[in-house]
Simulated scan of single mutants.
Amino acid sequence: MTMVLLGHQTVGAHRPGPSRRTLSLALASAAAVLLTGCWFVVRQYNERPPWADDVTYEAGFIQGNRVRQYDPTGQEVRKLLAGGCEELPSAGLGGRKASYNPGLWVDGCLAGAAGRQPERQGLLH
């Protein structure tokens, strides 16, 4: 590309950048580093997410809260508070998230069934 300035000579305005080969190698290297990092994260945590404790507590809380909201007589809530929350994960009814940490799932279930605010909610708990 040439640039013409009025009253002056023609000036070359083209500034060469990196070649396509260099850009391709840089992109391929960045993709390889990203994929390697993802592979290490998956290998480290497998099917259990790194924030599994928060997920477990919240899943238990949601279960207890749902029972509380949809129980018109209050009988199911009394069952949960009297030991039903402990029985659900041991019977396999707490779901996959309860298997990450059954104790935290039970704590969340009890908090939800009792109508308390969740203790472990948000980024800073």
Rank of each mutant, 00 (worst) to 15 (best):
M3L: 11
V4Y: 03
L5W: 04
L5K: 05
L6H: 05
Q9T: 01
T10W: 01
V11I: 14
V11Q: 08
G17S: 14
G17E: 12
R21M: 07
R21F: 10
T22Y: 07
L27A: 15
V33Y: 08
L34H: 08
L35A: 15
G37D: 10
F40A: 15
V42G: 06
R43K: 08
Q44C: 02
Y45L: 02
E47H: 10
E47C: 00
P50S: 05
A52C: 05
D53S: 05
T56H: 01
A59L: 02
F61C: 01
I62K: 10
I62C: 01
N65H: 15
N65L: 13
V67N: 05
R68S: 09
Y70Q: 14
G74H: 12
Q75M: 11
E76W: 09
R78M: 12
K79D: 15
K79T: 13
G83H: 13
G84P: 14
C85F: 09
C85M: 08
E86C: 02
A91P: 03
G92Q: 08
G92Y: 09
G94V: 09
S99D: 14
S99P: 00
S99E: 15
Y100G: 01
N101L: 01
P102Y: 03
P102E: 11
G103M: 02
G103D: 14
D107K: 13
C109M: 06
G112H: 04
Q121P: 00
G122L: 06
